[in-house]
Each structure stands twice: as structure tokens, then as C-alpha cells.
């Protein structure tokens, strides 16, 4: 089978970012978490595309500069996602994601005893306390964040 023979093709991107190798079915979640609906640009979402590597995958194409995407949020959601940076319709860089050391306003502390539950205007900040087990803790109260994927 030639590569791309069964791929669904969406119009090529001239300038922007392609998020590839998103686990199938997760694109909508990423769309929301990256707040792509707030960006004034074209976004194409391809769901359950065939993939040699993954069987099925999701892809998001965003016609916006990389700076507008929260890579920390993306790294937290899934650091195996590939970030392709497109300039003049060609991939100029493939950016690898890391598990971010710090998350700001991406997840919220659920500890009712935490100061974030009463103090107005505080950023929700989590730090990576255990990279091996991908455990994040609230910077204020050390409450563990229970991620749905773990």
C-alpha cells in the first residue's frame, strides 16, 4: 500500500501547525483544552483517520502561529502527539512534546480545603512531582491531580 493511499485529505495548510498522532477520539478534547474555538483562524479536525502506526488517529490542523497554542497543555494531555510546524506549505520542524514541569490554569484543584477554593484571582498552578508516574500536585496544597488517563 502506498503511503497516504487511504488517507482522507483536507486542503493543505500554508502556514500553521498540524497536530498529528492524536489518539483516536481525543481531538475534540484537545480542541477544547487548547481553546481553539477562541482563535480567529481556520481549524480542521480529522477524526479516526487510518494510521499505519496507530491503526486510527486524530489530526488537527490549525492555521495559526505556534505561539498561540499552549504546548504545556498539549504535553500534559498527551506528550506523544507530534507537532508539525508548517511554513510555505512544507513541514519545517517537528516539535517533540515533553511532560511540562508546571501547569498554569490547565487543571483545577479539587481540594475544598485549598486556598484556591476561596481566594479570588489565583492562578491554578500544578507542578510535576513524579515524572515517572506522571503525577501532578497543586502548588498551594500539594493535592494530587487524578488524571483520567492514569
Amino acid at each position: 500500500m502506498r503511503q497516504g493511499e487511504h488517507m482522507l485529505n483536507i486542503g493543505g495548510l500554508h502556514e500553521g501547525v498540524v497536530l498529528d498522532h492524536i489518539p483516536a477520539g481525543k481531538a475534540m478534547d484537545i480542541y477544547k483544552r487548547l481553546k481553539l474555538d477562541k482563535l480567529d483562524c481556520q481549524v480542521a479536525m480529522i477524526m479516526r483517520a487510518r494510521s499505519n502506526k496507530m491503526g486510527q488517529k486524530d489530526i488537527i490542523k490549525v492555521e495559526a502561529p505556534l505561539e498561540l497554542l499552549n504546548l504545556d497543555a498539549l504535553g500534559f494531555i498527551d506528550h506523544s502527539i507530534t507537532v508539525n510546524i508548517i511554513k510555505d506549505a512544507v513541514i519545517v520542524e517537528k516539535r517533540k512534546l515533553n511532560l511540562p514541569k508546571k501547569l498554569v490554569n490547565i487543571i483545577h484543584c479539587k481540594n475544598p480545603r485549598c486556598i484556591t477554593s476561596i481566594e479570588q484571582g489565583l492562578d491554578q498552578v500544578f507542578y510535576l512531582s513524579d515524572p515517572a508516574d506522571e503525577i501532578y500536585r497543586c502548588v498551594y496544597c500539594d493535592e494530587k491531580y487524578h488524571s483520567s488517563k492514569k
Binding site: 481540594n111 480545603r113 485549598c114 486556598i115 484556591t116 477554593s117 476561596i118 481566594e119 489565583l122 497543586c138 502548588v139 498551594y140 496544597c141 500539594d142 493535592e143
Partner: peptide, 23 residues
């Protein structure tokens, strides 16, 4: 009584802050 309150204070303080117990 709220956990992390002294830490919040330390972020905005012009003087050293000691946590004397937070929840």
C-alpha cells in the same frame, strides 16, 4: 485554615513569611 494560604502570602509579600500551620 486553608491549605496554601501562607504560600499565596509569600508570593505577594515584601517581607519573609513563615507558615505557622495551614490546615
Amino acid at each position: 485554615p486553608k491549605e496554601g494560604a501562607p504560600y499565596v502570602a509569600s508570593l505577594h509579600s515584601g517581607i519573609p513569611v513563615i507558615n505557622a500551620g495551614d490546615g
